[in-house]
Every structure is written in structure tokens, then in C-alpha cells.
């Protein structure tokens, strides 16, 4: 299946703003994030903490609906889904 990925702010510079991702059928958001992390050097550090979980402050949306808890990595995907990754900014 093919999903659409949208990256914001710092992630847009790192991964590209919008791109398509091909995944095996039955893939989850966790699988998608892992594949995105492997796209560029520094991708893994940007998306995962030392324990190997997706950094908790990163906002993950599927089809504009925010994922929380276990769904952040375990939500199953369908072809045509839009996965958005947003790292909040903090400066002022």
C-alpha cells in the first residue's frame, strides 16, 4: 500500500515536506515511522528517544486525527492514509 506523509517544521527540512511511502499491507504507524526514520541521516535520532520509542512530544496525526497512547505506534494503516508528523516549536 501507499500512504501520504506530511512533515512539518524541522521535520520538513529533514525528511521533505510531502512524500509517498510504500509499505507492506498490514503495516502500522510504527512501521511507517521506522521507514521514515531510515530515509535520511539523523532521522532516527529525530524521531526516537534513547529507549527506542517515538519521542513523546511529536504530534502524530492520521487523516488529521491525532493519535495518542499505544495508537501512536500500533494504529494500522490503509492505502491512501495521510500520516502527519509535527514537532512543536518552543522558542519565543
Amino acid at each position: 500500500m501507499i500512504i501520504q506523509v506530511k512533515a512539518f517544521a524541522r521535520f520538513r527540512e529533514l525528511f521533505g515536506g510531502e512524500f509517498l511511502l510504500t509499505l507492506p499491507d498490514g503495516s502500522t504507524t510504527g512501521d511507517a515511522v521506522e521507514k521514515i526514520a531510515a530515509r535520511v541521516p539523523g532521522g532516527k535520532e529525530a524521531l526516537y528517544n534513547e529507549e527506542g520509542t517515538i519521542r513523546p512530544y511529536i504530534i502524530i496525526l492520521i487523516n488529521k486525527k491525532r493519535l495518542s497512547g499505544d495508537d501512536r505506534a500500533a494504529r494500522s494503516l490503509a492505502g491512501g492514509d495521510e500520516l502527519a508528523l509535527l514537532p512543536p516549536v518552543a522558542g519565543g
Binding site: 517544521a9 524541522r10 512543536p88 516549536v89 518552543a90 522558542g91 519565543g92
Partner: peptide
């Protein structure tokens, strides 16, 4: 709420 970093803001 407002926040900025680089060319990005929210």
C-alpha cells in the same frame, strides 16, 4: 499561545 523556531511558528 505562540512559539517560533527558524522560519516556523505556531
Amino acid at each position: 499561545h505562540g512559539a517560533v523556531c527558524g522560519f516556523d511558528g505556531q
